[in-house]
Write a protein that binds this DNA or RNA. Structure first.
Lengths: 137, 137
DNA sequence: AATTGTAGTGCAACGGAAGTGCATTTATTA
DNA sequence: TAATAAATGCACTTCCGTTGCACTACAATT
């Protein structure tokens, strides 16, 4: 619990009760989390608070946003020391067409692409879709 | 004009006036098109018609859908003979953070990724974001 | 040519998700 | 303790995708 507080403080996020709970919830989950998920998990809290908490987390580098193609924004905790902005830290994500869950494959970085003349890449998003480990066995 | 009719018929899409117009519109555009774009271009037509036209096109392999991370679904014509379902035909897309346009880089296929044990990939989506050719010069 | 059926189109309305403005509460610090 | 800033909650908006139902145009069949 103390570690969470510390982690948040380190990143310039004031560790309020709500934020600690949300962080904890995300830490315990192995998959990417949508706002709706948090909403369901914390029925008492207001959606706006949760929404803004996620935005704050994202801005401060506590979580990174994931666009898995479902049209719903999802989030996952950043690894300690990760620098999501930097290209070399861009890992890929796997979305399961069966259970509809999305996971980070932090070991797998996005390979370098040779772009045509004139194009400058700043960011990249790679999502593989298929059947995940849990569903394929 | 006749070519468009033929192309549609080949793909099992009845070439109605509306559909031909939409196809033509997309053929003349160099960038991926959102429903809203078509809506603006054909103010007289109903959104539903345009929506369903795109869905039909997609289903019949006339266009492919692009998720460029803006949260808006976009579409682009398939190349003749392309098989969007097949993995080897998956090209990547480039989204310009400046002009907000998205283009197909059909020459650039998505590289193969070695997934961890248990994961089976069926599909992939790779979007590079940055500054496009037009905006960088 | 008239009839029947199917595919396409238009209108209206719904629903999910992201986002904003403002009032209120809680925490910080002077 | 007063003054200030940050966090939370409520209400409401907007955008986009989507669906149900009625109507129309087209094609096939008798």
């Amino acid at each position: 619990m103390k570690e969470i507080e510390q982690r948040l403080t380190e990143n310039g996020v004031r560790p309020t009760a709500m934020r600690i709970l949300i962080y904890k919830y995300m830490a315990e989950s192995e998959v990417a989390i949508a706002l709706t998920d948090i909403e369901n998990a914390f029925a008492k809290a207001d959606r706006t608070t949760l929404f803004r908490t996620l935005k704050t987390f994202e801005q401060k580098g506590v979580v990174h946003q994931i666009d898995d193609g479902t049209g719903v924004q999802k989030y996952a905790l950043c690894e300690t020391g990760c620098n999501c902005e930097l290209e070399q830290d861009l890992h890929l994500h796997f979305h399961c067409n069966n259970c509809n869950e999305t996971v980070c494959l932090t070991e797998h970085k996005i390979p370098n692409i040779n772009l045509p003349e004139g194009y400058v890449a700043e960011d990249a998003n790679l999502v593989l879709k298929g059947i995940c480990e849990k569903c394929s066995t």
